[in-house]
Amino acid sequence: MIQVFTFYLFAVLLIASGAFTIFSRNPVHSVLWLILAFFNAAGLMVLVGAEFIAMLLVIVYVGAVAVLFLFVVMMLDIDFAELRAGFMKNVPLGILLAIVFVMELIFGIGAYQAGKIELADTPVNPAREGATNIEAVGELLYTKYIFLFETAGIILLVAMVGAIVLTNRKRAGVRPQNVSEQVARRPEDATRNMQPEVGKGVEL
């Protein structure tokens, strides 16, 4: 009973906040609705017993990705009239995309109902009996499929290095902080202890 109620609560809130993400006029509100949507998705994950995925969803998406979204969107100076003016121009593309997604959904559900295809001779056993979520994910990712996982990691690393190399440019006229010089600086190098006679003053 309580599970059904909680499921519908999270599901309704998820869909509603997803809709508000699209319909909000203000992009900052959109991002905040998106965060609420992530939260409800995490709630659904807890409900199906995948508490590890739920926590990851909150840590990665709410804690990092959405903060960066918010960070960027907050600094935008958006002219809403201009945004709405471009709406009609992009309508055909939007309709096309919508049709593609609906078709994919229909094909996906249709194919699922028609029965599944066997890809491997032996069915993949996802996890050992009685393992907790974390143990099961750990055994699969870090023991069984370690090489695939590390390959994915290396591809991401290369992409990251590429992005840094492409955006890192040397600018002229910039004076970066020289940390070792700052740390090595001592009071004796910067100050002098003067004891001038009365009425004489000091020469700097």
Partner: peptide, 14 residues
């Protein structure tokens, strides 16, 4: 809960 530490990370990131 057995993801206690992850819960703390999740909450503190909020």
């Amino acid at each position: 809960i057995n993801v206690g530490l992850l819960y703390i990370l999740a909450i503190s990131s909020l």
